[in-house]
Amino acid sequence: MDFYQVLQIIIPSMIAYAAPLIFTALGGVFSERSGVINIGLEGLMVIGAFTGIVFNLMYADVLGAWTPWLSVLVAMIAALLFSTLHAVASITFRADQTVSGVAINLLAVGLTLFLVKKIYDKGQTDIIAETFPRIDIPLLSDIPFIGPILFSNGYYIAYLAIIVAIIVWYIIFKTPFGLRLRSVGEHPMAADTMGVNVTKIRYQAVLLSGAFAGIGGAIHATLFANDFSHTTINGQGFMAIAAMIFGKWNPLGAMGAALFFGLAQSLSIVGSSLPFIKDIPSVFLLIMPYILTIIALTGFIGRADAPKASGQPYIKGKR
């Protein structure tokens, strides 16, 4: 197997593994840019994964090939609704945002496993029949050399993740909503003085983060797990948080980091069949995203600073 063939296996798999991380990390960017820490991304992904799989199992006969797309959509709505809990607790009731996020994670796992046992009477769901097909993008995959690496044997939804990251970058840095979002996260009082509704923006941001994490969870479950159990989402939410920090709270940076972590994940899984890589113990690939994030935070790779007001509830009139 030569190097070019190795790339043909690794690159599509990297983009696929990165897709859930990209969506979820973008959600994290929205929430944290508005000043609300969202440790609950993991739990929101769990909700997305559960909803996606259950919807897929229920409607696969009726919807056919459209099932995975619609299940992602339904998962998005479910996680958005679930994230209102975090929004209400951390914005309106001024709860400690980290604590509320921890509660979201525990609640999501408890609730979904409770429902799985209730519906299926066992610890995991059945295997889904309809998943995203692997495709070659027309025209682009015919480009010599890079076509077979970048645009073949992939998933539409994975490419969509990259496009969405660019759109989110545009929204956050080029639109009035984005400006308000960032100002609320940096200095809510100043934003409030200028007539920005801090509470409203923060609610929107947290709900967006729920929606995006829901998409991420559903994609991960549909593509890689094919069913739902307690290990379906196992750290992907926290890895998305890592990607967000590593990308310095910038949507494109987060996307880049997510792609990199996707590479690590895919190597740790398909790497055992590849030359060179199979000699690296997979534990190094597994822990690399986390270790790199810690190093990024300490400032060895350019300092990563959170939005200034992140973690603090905004109380009108308080200095």
Binding site: A89, F93, A95, V99, V102, L107, V109, G110, L113, F114
Partner: peptide, 22 residues
């Protein structure tokens, strides 16, 4: 009854303690 009901209860208790302002 699935034992996960207790995880739900514990998570909700954390929520309510954290939202003690409420």
């Amino acid at each position: 009854i699935p034992s996960e009901i207790v995880d739900i209860v514990i998570a909700l208790i954390i929520f309510f303690v954290a939202s003690s302002y409420f």
